[in-house]
Design a binder for these strands. Sequence first.
RNA 1: GCCGACGUAGCUCAACGGUAGAGCAGCUGAUUUGUAAUCAGCAGGUUGGGGGUUCGAGUCCCUUCGUCGGCUCCA
Length: 582
Amino acid sequence: MGYSDPAIDFNTPEGANRYRHSTSHVLAQAVKRLYPGVKLGIGPAIENGFYYDFEFAEPISADELPRIEEEMKQIIKERLPIERHEMSREEALAFFRERGETYKLELINDLPDDAVISFYTQGEFTDLCAGPHLEHTGQIKAFKLTGLAGAYWRGSEKNPMLQRIYGTSFPSEEQLQEYLAKLEEAKKRDHRKLGRELDLFSLQEAGPGFPFLHNNGMIIWQELIDFWRQEHRRAGYEEIKTPLILNRELWEHSGHWDHYRENMYFTTIDGQNYAIKPMNCPGAMLVYRSRMHSYRDLPRRIAELGQVHRHEPSGTLHGLTRVRSFTQDDAHIFMCPGQEEAEVAGVIALIDRFYRQFGFAYRVELSTRPEKAMGSVEQWEHATAILEKVLQDKGIPYQINPGDGAFYGPKIDFHLTDSLGRSWQCGTIQLDFQMPEKFDLTYIGEDGQKHRPVMIHRVIYGSLERFLAMVIEHYGGAFPAWLAPVQAVVIPITERHHAYGQEVYHTLQEASLRAELDDRNEKVGYKIREAQLRKIPYMLVVGDREQEAKLVAVRHRDAGDQGSSPLSGFIAALEEEIKLKK
RNA sequence: GCCGACGUAGCUCAACGGUAGAGCAGCUGAUUUGUAAUCAGCAGGUUGGGGGUUCGAGUCCCUUCGUCGGCUCCA
């Protein structure tokens, strides 16, 4: 099985991985040549590229990447054959010990006893590697080093931090350029850029991680909430609002003090200790507990748009997607044992309904028991089995994310992808047997005795801030009419059309449409250009012809000039478009 | 929090250690315009903050805050 033409195989994931994995070896070889004392970490292929981790004697800077690229080109020019061979464990250890490759030694020591220890050699460079690889280095046609970053050895903050060089490679220069151009294009959709350009929100030095929403952003926010309320009423939810600040005792009681303290903000009122809520659940528990429940009341689905504050490490903050204060579209479902499956299934259906509305593709994960968890292993297994069963019954593909559950229960997570391909958790469904216990929640069963309810914590949007970011990037700022901050702008051609423009504008306003009148002293082309840049869906040009016949000349953001129509007809069509959330 | 980079006008970006500039946006005036930029003028800054080196710092050094790319973490 030859591999003389990498372009043929590149279209399969295996082929692309092999190609890029070999590129990462070329990178390591180049670095070894340029920085003799360097120690090697690992260097796998990843989605869209590869990386290699190094420990340099002196940290290098990004300016040095071009120099490394030059050396890589040299290695490619040398067309070094890439050859596989095996060593015994002892030989392998001796090989790396001699070369001072302490990280490689660690890797070998962690290999299972019966593992085949294989190596790949190209020229003077040999690396521990399972392969497979290309036949020779000359097969790499186009590559680029794309970044330099710190990364903990084996992903643990307890380990030393290595320097990771990222890169990508393709079988042709055209494909590489195409990929880089696509990345540039994607950057234009970045919600942080669009947020400023479209005046949706801002991030200020006065409050790192605490976003400011502007009027345009608030309009989208409110539409998201209106849609949410409507759907939740239909799905049988109630809505509550609980305080942002509650006393410390409550958080000690709920387990947050033990399990979540380092993420919480605290304050003092009249000498008493309070915490700013990082989660909404305790508030919902108190509401549940404020009266008696019969099994006939259950399931009780109690929703809350709750603003939470969490102290996230400064280095993790990111636009609207990772903040320190956000609004969860939370709900807590209290139910009798046995109702779990139906309720979890109901929430999954609701999440699907929402994401479908926006056309989001999503990925599902099942997160299991973390190290720091409340409750017995049996309870966790029981809860996890329920979640797993629902996913399987529904035929939903999912990955297991071990140890990533909440401290009170396992969860199903729903991930969306941003414009640069980064994945963000939005929806989540968490099954909780702990909190009802902690708060001694009860209901009266058919038998007249007290019983313990089970609880689900769930969010659909996840955080409204994060979801808003996803919405911005998904539409690239060109929002559908139901979300658009301004739905139509009236553009009179000259001053002589201002009165009619006013009339049109007022009629739109009275129909509760979000309209603007652009009566500035500018040419039509100028006003249209500006409206296009603001991504306003409809532009209504009015001049002599329109004024005379009570028409509007409709221009659509994407479809262009639509010709003239009676104002009433335009309004009816727009109202329909909004109602259908097209 | 950790590693690296970057902070110059509202925005995008210039300025060999030697008087901080441009385009767009803004304001004023002229122009009354038919589907992506009319013309002219004006104004706009303790170069993120603080310290230091130097005759002299946007530029070099230290420190701090913020942002960006990752790592860890997470809605």
